[in-house]
Simulated scan of single mutants.
Amino acid sequence: MENSVLGVWIAHGEGRFTFRNNNVLQKLKENHCLAIKYTDDHGNPTECYPLNPNGSTEGIAGICSVDGRHLAMMPHPERCTRMWQWPWTPNDWKYTISPWQRIFDNAYTWCVTED
């Protein structure tokens, strides 16, 4: 799902990512642990309301562990896995299953894949 820019339901403004010092943020960046960000309409991370409902630093909406086993996020993609759940889509979209379904399919595939 890398580089996808999708609408998603936000239930409230909680889940704000802030950092006591820049070292933690830098370590998350270095380890590629910034999994989801709030963006503007052009895909640029934003701290501006309403596109970022809680003002999270650098638009951070979700982080993951280094090995990818743990994901903590504020948005609720489980509320928009079917297209009828979306409040708006472009007229040319012909999806029947939401692109957000992929986040759950990817998790399942990871769980059943043997290394």
Rank of each mutant, 00 (worst) to 15 (best):
G59F: 08
D115V: 10
Q26C: 09
K29A: 10
N106Y: 03
C80S: 15
Q85D: 11
C64A: 15
Y95N: 12
M1R: 06
P87W: 08
L51M: 04
R69L: 11
H32N: 08
W86M: 11
T81A: 01
I60A: 04
P45H: 08
K27M: 08
A35C: 12
V8E: 07
L25D: 07
D105N: 00
D105Q: 00
E2R: 12
P90L: 15
E2A: 11
E30H: 02
P87S: 12
R16V: 08
G55W: 02
H12T: 07
G59D: 01
Q101M: 00
L34P: 03
M83C: 14
Q26K: 08
C64Q: 10
G43C: 13
V5M: 15
G7W: 11
V8F: 09
N54L: 05
H42N: 14
N31G: 00
G62N: 11
W110I: 10
V24F: 09
M1I: 14
I36A: 12
A35S: 13
R20K: 13
G62D: 13
N54Q: 03
N106I: 03
T57E: 06
K29Y: 02
S56K: 01
P77Q: 09
L6I: 15
W86S: 10
C64G: 04
G15T: 10
W86F: 12
S65H: 10
N106E: 09
D41S: 13
D40E: 08
H32E: 09
Q101I: 00
S65F: 09
E14P: 07
T81Y: 00
N3F: 15
R16E: 07
L71K: 04
P53W: 01
N31V: 01
H70S: 12
R20H: 15
N31L: 10
T46P: 04
G7I: 14
G68Q: 07
G68W: 01
V5Y: 05
M74T: 11
L6N: 14
G15W: 05
D92C: 15
W93G: 11
K94Y: 10
D67R: 02
P53C: 07
N44T: 13
G7E: 11
T89S: 15
G55V: 05
N31Y: 03
